[in-house]
Design a binder for these strands. Sequence first.
DNA 1: ATTTTGATTGTTGTTACAATAATCAAATGG
DNA 2: CCATTTGATTATTGTAACAACAATCAAAAT
Lengths: 204, 204
Amino acid sequence: MEQKSTQNKSKRGGLRVNAGRKVDTGLFGEPTSVIRVPESQKGVVKDFLSAYRNKQLKQESYNHLEIVAADKSGDIALPLFTSKVAAGFPSPADDHIEKRLNPNDFLIDQQDATFFVTISGLSMRDAGLLPNDKAVVDRSKIPAIGDIVLAVIDSEYTIKMLAKTKQNQPRLLSANPDFAPIEIKEGQQFEIWGVVTGSFRRFK
Amino acid sequence: MEQKSTQNKSKRGGLRVNAGRKVDTGLFGEPTSVIRVPESQKGVVKDFLSAYRNKQLKQESYNHLEIVAADKSGDIALPLFTSKVAAGFPSPADDHIEKRLNPNDFLIDQQDATFFVTISGLSMRDAGLLPNDKAVVDRSKIPAIGDIVLAVIDSEYTIKMLAKTKQNQPRLLSANPDFAPIEIKEGQQFEIWGVVTGSFRRFK
DNA sequence: ATTTTGATTGTTGTTACAATAATCAAATGG
DNA sequence: CCATTTGATTATTGTAACAACAATCAAAAT
């Protein structure tokens, strides 16, 4: 392998006095250091850090979280294309329009039991719920194991997947390995506020 | 220093089969791991961790003692949560809901230029677009670098993020490391059919 | 029966390291 | 001569490793 002396590689390169990555060009624009955190809080800390990064980028403050009631007025049904192929699908000329779709109808079953909540944090990332997405919460649905729910634990609201322990106690799972499951212990206030039946977002 | 053979130390000790510190006897009662944080936020994270520790302690006394009911009110302030960003957000009492949101208004700008497409495949997974999601495609928007677009390459349709090469040729990026970028070569038919301005889905 | 002591094993803050990323300028190619 | 390629250089970043510390055990000593 060695060919130090007989190398005939190209003669590019050589000393670069001022080369190299510049300082503070990392994610945070400042030096970092490591810190030890309990396994179960890893996700929380990471969430905080990514929010901190965003805050640095755009001077915006953290999005204020609030529950918003659903308004289903207006009646627009727009074309929906079919696509069954993974990489591509045939030209959506007008004859490929399968049907028309009204997002309001698609998303909302019981208008007066439906609310929207803005997602914050990455704890449901792998379920496709990203920060700033709107989650559709239906209070009239009966929660089942496996559902994504809006739960209240000691008056803290959180969106998690509903599961149960072997002792049939509620257990809330994140969709992100950085976040530990939450077990509801005796004496804790716990309520399932509603079932997350859908979500929507804007990209642009 | 060595005195292996001539040692006349006391004869205490010897094998201790079950000796040693017990697991999870540390500060947090659970395993820990290290994480890298920006220097300036080290204190914030440490504050959070010590508050978390207190909270754990308190929780414990709740479960085992019955005389602590008095200080239930004094909830520990978790610095990380003050910005409502990470794990929970404040209780939205039902009568505090003033705003209403109409998904159609939120998602659709130009009614007659908007179409829906059903996502298939995982190539845009990390952008939060999962199979069966509905993408909102607006044909009236002008595509910009960084936008998610519905593109047509040799009459195959695909949803990707728009980028460009150094030669200013279009380049389509997936939001999933398993998928390679697509470069548009000379002679290929290429068109940006519309800009993906949003998406929505149902969970249940 | 209590205390001392060495062995044992987990925690914890820090350092080290390898993989990646960013940047520079010489060499190359048109 | 100018844009691109290439290797060198330097910083970031997640993780592994380490050493000092802490907790626990039981044999030996008191």
